[in-house]
Amino acid sequence: MLVSIQNISFHYGSANIPVLAIPQWSVQSGERVFLHGPSGSGKSTLLNLLAGILLPNSGAIEILGQRLNALSARRRDKWRARHIGVVFQQFNLIPYFGAVDNIRLAAHFARTPNATGRAKELLQALGIDENLHHQPASQLSIGQQQRVAIARALINQPELLIVDEPTSALDTQNRNAFMTLLLEQAQRNDTALIFVSHDLSLAGRFSRVEALVEINRAGGQH
């Protein structure tokens, strides 16, 4: 079992109304999960909980057998760097840093050695020309940036990849190319994928499709 959620409940600040309440949910290693739901259904909150940025008010989240609440903030940050890759909707990269440097920065936090060579390999596999390797990220197209983001997310060979609406800023052609590359790379690295989107047309590419409203018992406040 890669991810295991047991009876978690989460609410923001002092408001006692939970935005997320999941009795039980799990992901197997190497699994590719498509999670969909309308905005405000708690997708973002769930992803932050899985990444260890937020902690549940009650219940437990275990990833790779490690209970996230049990780690100190500092160790949780390190743990995230090493075991979880993240790709957002857009603005994934440090804009003034080159493509290779952005990837190396992720490796730096995870203490992954020999990152430069592997970063270049990944970029090559994702179709980023060598002359773009040292361009500041802000000078790359959105499509290129998203591909660099995949490479960045995979550099530390994480067991879990969290991907949040990564195609919403891309046109159809780029979207399809991006999805193919992402799934290919995830498979090659044997990385489990939690893919969040409201675009159900992508669901066919995944082994498991779930609606968050069915998992979340909090009533979809957020």
């Binding site: 940025i53 390190k78 995230r80 760097a81 993240v86």
Partner: peptide, 16 residues
Amino acid sequence: QREIAVMRAIGASPWF
């Protein structure tokens, strides 16, 4: 803010 979010996501601590 976005830069901070990116760094946090890839494992930077607030101390960093």
